[in-house]
Structures are given as structure tokens and as C-alpha cells.
């Protein structure tokens, strides 16, 4: 065979180069649309910067204001922690119980039907869910107040989202009964992947019912719990759109969270530099919580390895 027809690179090398080329496109877009704005925000957090005006270097002044002088900082952090902790509690428990119940059904058709029914609400956009709660449930003439009126409990009728004593809890309760189809599916997949041998061994040892749920099922879906935990924490720290729709952080600052305060500073008050400083702090909060989670919350694989 002649060497002349031999390609410069072998198949493997060409395949690898193609992968690199395709990755380069993705990386370029990622850099342009994600990394550059992130670094830009980081640099702008050291400036007093208003859209349409000259920016002025102020060093750590924005951070100092945020951490030591802004009276909104501490309450908004506490609200964020409360809402995130609440979300973690319900997302780690309710969907898991529902998934376990579905998984325990004997007929495959029933299991399929319930999985489907719990998944369907996922297609409703989050904004629509917030608007439904705002307009149909918490409204002055909404479902909750009308039910109270019908029950003769007029004294409990209130503006649930505008009453300082109820607003934060009302916000936390949005989405009740918190059976997110996504979480149910994740947990269901985890429960389905528990080896038959483990289940049988547990039964032989007399481990059934609640005992089996806590001693076998939960440790075996620890990877799924860890995933949901990380996602819930990130969402809890970052998200503000629900509060923007429901309360705009009010009454007063009773439902304000850092993400929403960042938005108001950036676009309503035009304090872009200060908003960037809030954004950078949120980034470090998420990073810290994720590292803690990765370090101290062991997944199923790690537990198996340890075992």
C-alpha cells in the first residue's frame, strides 16, 4: 500500500480535533455570554456606576455599604434563609413520600398513571403559578378569604401578602402541596434503582414499612436527595421572580431577598455598581453552600464505598 493516500491524522486524531472545534464554538459562546458578563459584573462592583453616566472607581465602598450600612441586608438574608430552608424541607420530604407511595403501588399501570398526573403540572410556567396564587388564592376576594368567609371566620380574612405578619409565610406556602413532578420523578428513579437483593435482604431481616423507608430507601436515594438539595439551595439564593410578582419584597421589606434587592438597585434605582456587589456576594454564598454540601453530605456511591 502506498503511503501517499494515508491521511495526515488518523481517525482518532481527526475525531478529537472535530470535538475540540465543536467545543471551541460552545466555549466561545459560553465565554461571551456567561464568563465575560460575570467578570464584568465583578469589576463593576468596585465602581459607582449608573447606566448612561460615567462610572467612578470607589474600591470596596459598595461592599462596605452592603455589609455594614444597608439596613436591608440582614433582613433580606434572613428571609432568604427562611425561604430556602423551608423549600429544602418540603422538597426533600413531600415529593419523596409521594414517590415512595407511587413506587409501592403493585400495578404498573397505576404507577404510570400517578407518575403522569404528578408530572403534568410541570408544564405550567412558574410565573403562571405565582399569578394564580396572587390572583386566585391570596386575593381579597380569592379562594382563601372566601373560604374563611363561608366558614364564618371573617376575622381571619386579610390581605395575606400585604399583611406584615403573614406575608413571608404566605410566600413560603406558594406551591402547596409542594409535590413537584420533577422531584417526584427523580426520587422515583432512585427508588426504582435500589437492587432487588437489598430489598429482599431487608425483608428477611424483618425490616419493613417505615423502618425500611428510613433505613434502606433514604440511604439508597441519597444521591438524589443531594442533587435536589443543591438545586433547591441554588434556586433559593438566586431566585426572586416569584417574590417580584407576588409582593415586590413588601410589605416594607418583610419579604425582601438579596436577589430582588439586587434587581431593584440595578434597574429601578440605577445603582449598577451596588447591584453588582450584591450579585458577587450571592455568588460566594452559593459557592460556599455548595462546597459545604459536597463535603459533608455523602451520596449513595460514597456511602457504598465507605460501607
Amino acid at each position: 500500500m502506498s503511503n501517499r493516500s494515508r491521511p495526515l491524522f488518523g481517525y482518532r486524531a481527526r475525531f478529537t480535533l472535530t470535538c475540540y472545534a465543536l467545543l471551541a464554538v460552545q466555549m466561545t459562546l459560553l465565554v461571551v455570554f456567561v464568563y465575560v458578563p460575570v467578570f464584568w459584573a465583578f469589576s463593576k462592583s468596585f465602581f459607582k456606576f449608573e447606566v448612561g453616566s460615567e462610572s467612578r472607581f470607589v474600591g470596596f465602598a459598595n461592599y462596605a455599604e452592603l455589609l455594614f450600612r444597608d439596613p436591608t441586608t440582614l433582613p433580606s438574608l434572613l428571609h432568604m434563609l427562611f425561604l430556602t430552608a423551608f423549600a429544602v424541607c418540603v422538597r426533600l420530604s413531600v415529593p419523596l413520600v409521594v414517590a415512595k407511595l407511587i413506587h409501592s403501588l403493585s400495578r404498573e399501570k397505576s404507577r404510570y398513571l400517578f407518575r403522569l398526573l404528578f408530572l403534568v403540572p410541570v408544564v405550567v410556567p412558574g410565573v403562571a403559578v405565582q399569578l394564580i396564587w396572587y390572583g386566585m388564592i391570596y386575593n381579597d376576594r380569592g379562594m382563601l378569604n372566601e373560604l374563611l368567609r363561608m366558614a364564618g371566620l371573617e376575622e381571619f380574612v386579610r390581605g395575606w401578602l400585604s399583611d406584615p405578619s403573614t406575608a413571608l409565610v404566605a410566600v413560603a406556602f406558594v406551591g402547596f402541596p409542594w409535590v413537584g413532578g420533577f422531584e417526584v420523578l427523580i426520587y422515583y428513579a432512585g427508588l426504582s434503582s435500589i437492587p432487588e437483593s437489598v430489598t429482599e435482604a431487608a425483608l428477611l431481616e424483618g425490616c419493613t414499612g417505615i423502618q425500611k423507608f428510613f433505613r434502606i430507601d433514604i440511604p439508597m436515594v441519597m444521591s438524589q436527595l443531594k442533587l435536589i438539595l443543591i438545586l433547591t439551595i441554588i434556586a433559593g439564593v438566586q431566585s426572586f421572580e416569584g417574590l417580584f410578582i407576588l409582593t415586590k419584597g413588601g410589605p416594607g421589606f418583610r419579604t425582601m431577598v438579596p436577589g430582588l434587592w439586587m434587581y431593584f438597585n440595578a434597574f429601578s434605582f440605577q445603582r449598577m455598581g451596588y447591584a453588582c456587589a450584591i450579585g458577587v456576594c450571592l455568588f460566594f454564598i452559593i459557592l460556599g453552600l455548595t462546597v459545604l454540601n459536597m463535603r459533608y453530605f455523602r451520596s449513595t456511591t460514597e456511602l457504598e464505598g465507605r460501607g
Binding site: S162, D163, P164, S165, G249, G250, P251, G252, F253, R254, F264, S268, F269, Q270, R271
Partner: peptide, 21 residues
């Protein structure tokens, strides 16, 4: 004043009028 002043006044007033403070 600036927009932040308005926002904070509105929020504090809302709290005051609703017995939050």
C-alpha cells in the same frame, strides 16, 4: 428625590399603616 427614596418611603409607610411598625 431619587427613586430609592420613593421606594423606601412607600415601603415604610405601608408597614406603618398596616401596624407593621
Amino acid at each position: 428625590f431619587d427613586l430609592k427614596f420613593n421606594d423606601i418611603q412607600a415601603r415604610m409607610l405601608e408597614l406603618y399603616l398596616n401596624d407593621g411598625i
